[in-house]
Each structure stands twice: as structure tokens, then as C-alpha cells.
């Protein structure tokens, strides 16, 4: 009996494309773990954008408006970088995006309502945990395969450096003088940890 292929399978054997995922000729498929990393980073930058949006909504006319706007612009750039990486590697965004949309804004606006210094304290807490998180990721990626993940690592490095800048500016602007500085930063850091754990998986 002759081997007859259905129309649906006719071209299956003559595969021109090497990457099964996007059908680009040269595209190394990244692992599920790295998918999770991109997902959480994208969610994080989105959340950061929302935090600054919340702060600007309250402090839009205060003297630190220009500074917050500058940091926000940098966050927009970060998000753009991760947007591109997400699309390139076809990473599923986290299902919690609508939640971060609201939670980020509320965190930003809520801290800003307490005053400019509290807003800075919020920035310091968030950026501190994000810098730590990015360093963890860089370590993991470098251990795994630095050549393969060169592009992702470069993106994370750029973001990490600027987050560190945000952290330092926050400190300069007197974050530590905010009321309940210690309790507030501790609470926000715990929140960030939980958010990171959730966004990687969900």
C-alpha cells in the first residue's frame, strides 16, 4: 500500500524553517525558565510605570514633579525594551496585568498622598527589591548560557543600572525622613517579593 499523506501533512517533511516557534530561520528557543524571567520583568516594569503614574497623578504640580517625570520616562523605556523581548520570544504576559495596573497606581498614589518624602520612600523600597531581583536573574543567566542570553542580559543590565539610579535619587531626596520609613519600606518589599513570585508563574 502506498504511503499517502493527507493535505494537512503534505509539507511536513520538507521543513524550511528551523525555529518551530516563530518560523524564523535562526532563532534559538529560550527555556521556560527564561520565559518566566521575561514575564516577571515585563510585569515589573509595567508596575513601575503604574507607580510613577500614580505619583504623578498626585504630585503632578509639586516641586519634585520634574524628577518623577524623568524617572517615569526611563521606566517607559524599560517597558518598551521588555515589550520587544516579549514579542520576539512569544512570551505569555502575566494574567495579573489588570491587577498590577490598579495595584501599581494605588501604591504610587497612596504613597504620594502621604507626601513627597513618602513617595520617595516607596521608590526606594521598590527599586531596592527590583535591583536585587535583577541581580539574581543576571547571575542565573550567566551561569546557564551567557552567549545565548546576551541580548536579555544586556537589557536587564541597562534596567538594573537605572533602577539603582532611581534608588539613589530617592535616598538623596530624603526618603529616610518619611514618616514610618522602616515599616513602609519593609511592607513594600514584602509586596514586591510576592508580586515577583506570582508574576513568574501566573
Amino acid at each position: 500500500m502506498s504511503l499517502r499523506l493527507s493535505p494537512a501533512l503534505r509539507h511536513l517533511r520538507a521543513s524550511k524553517f528551523t525555529c518551530n516557534n516563530c518560523l524564523r530561520k535562526k532563532h534559538t528557543k529560550i527555556s521556560d525558565e527564561v520565559h518566566g524571567m521575561l514575564r516577571v520583568d515585563h510585569a515589573g516594569e509595567f508596575g513601575a510605570n503604574r507607580i510613577y503614574a500614580g505619583q504623578m497623578a498626585v504630585l503632578g504640580r509639586s516641586k519634585s514633579a520634574a524628577l518623577i517625570q524623568h524617572m517615569w520616562d526611563q521606566e517607559k523605556e524599560h517597558k518598551k525594551i521588555f515589550d520587544d523581548l516579549m514579542v520576539k520570544h512569544r512570551v505569555r504576559p502575566t494574567a495579573l496585568m489588570p491587577f498590577w495596573h490598579i495595584a501599581g497606581f494605588l501604591l504610587g498614589a497612596g504613597s504620594a498622598v502621604l507626601g513627597e518624602k513618602s513617595a520617595m520612600a516607596c521608590t526606594v523600597a521598590v527599586e531596592a527589591s527590583i535591583v536585587e531581583h535583577y541581580n539574581d536573574q543576571l547571575r542565573k543567566l550567566a551561569n546557564e548560557n551567557p552567549e545565548k542570553h546576551a541580548e536579555i542580559m544586556a537589557a536587564i543590565k541597562k534596567c538594573r543600572d537605572e533602577e539603582q539610579e532611581h534608588h539613589d535619587t530617592g535616598m538623596d531626596k530624603g526618603a529616610e525622613q518619611a514618616p514610618l520609613y522602616k515599616a513602609m519600606t519593609a511592607a513594600i518589599k514584602v509586596g514586591c517579593k510576592a508580586a515577583i513570585a506570582l508574576s513568574t508563574k501566573v
Partner: peptide
């Protein structure tokens, strides 16, 4: 919706006296 959120936040600030706290600090 965003406008409403903004104006209500300002309202909360005024009500809770955060404006004066900021001024003092």
C-alpha cells in the same frame, strides 16, 4: 474615570491634613 480618581485623591489629602504635614516637614 482617571479625572475622578485624581480629584478624589486631592480631596483625601485635604481632608486628612496631609497638605499641612507636608508644609511643616
Amino acid at each position: 474615570l482617571k479625572d475622578i480618581a485624581q480629584s478624589s485623591l486631592t480631596l483625601i489629602r485635604n481632608l486628612t491634613g496631609m497638605q499641612s504635614y507636608q508644609r511643616n516637614s
